[in-house]
Amino acid sequence: MAGYGATSRQRQRINAVLFLGPACVLLFFFFIAPVIVDIFVAFTDMGRTLRITELTTANFERMFTRDRRLAQTLVVTFMYVLATLAVFNVTFGLLLALVTTAVPERVGGFFRSVWLLPRMSPSVIYALLWAWAIDPNERGLLNQILINTVGIGPIDLMNDHPLLLIVVANGFIGASMGMIIFTSAIRAIPEHLFHAARVDGAGGLAIVRHITLPAIRWPLSFITVYQTLSLLVSFEYIWLITDGGPFYDTTVYALYVYKRAFESGQYAYGAALALMLVLLGIGLALLMWRFFDMKRLLQTPRIEVH
């Protein structure tokens, strides 16, 4: 039976290659290789000509000593991520989930769909809509509303409150993810717990605080970590709506990387900046992982179904 065993082992090897191969190839080309290339380029002087004349640490020297924009970019990034996360992606997403699960299902479903629309529309269309909505002259949607109903305006959001603008524009999209995850988490809470709490004397807010929030603790942690990382590296809407402006007022770190690398053609410097972003992301992820005790989430199921 030795022959049989050998073919079985062989088949196992073939299966492993067959099933894991494609994923490994994709992983290598799209995740590992770019990181290696990035690390390599970061230590060169590659510019628009793509020529490398020397291996150097000049990019990092510049980053830590001479780049005056960088500090401002980090501040903008911090404020942008924190505000979007705190106001929209977590808080507003949670609020939407709580409200849409508390009202009759048809109404709740409708509002959830409405809040999904920005996520479903192409980013360019979404950005164009925003451009029209905040147009500084009287034709802009916001100004029409302000002038006709409130009687103030016109205002120029883009120039006066650019950071607010990108937070709101991103938040409207980002809230939907939390909303969906939280909605399903709330639905998974056994109904008798709500019944028990009501009979035990808890009002609406007390039920949210004592039953709902503890029960969705893990989805809440997950969304916070996930959205932090996602906000840290994505910049498409900012790029489309404000292009990082006015001046550098809404240039977040990820957009700054893009601008340095592809608009100024400083590939090597862009790569070095990107490398720092990756490290920043990993550091932040580990920190939050620790803070939220996510290890326990992965160990045992946390939602108890009776």
């Binding site: 056994p190 008798h192 717990l193 019944h195 028990a196 709490a197 009501r198 009979v199 035990d200 004397g201 808890a202 009002g203 004592h210 039953i211 503890p214 029960a215 603790r217 108890e304 009776h306």
Partner: peptide, 20 residues
């Protein structure tokens, strides 16, 4: 009168203890 104001105690088939 809402459940919270009725001062009744209830035991459910599933016990419904607060898991956290």
């Amino acid at each position: 009168v809402e459940a919270k104001d009725r001062n009744v105690g209830i035991v459910f088939q599933s016990y419904a203890l607060y898991p956290h």
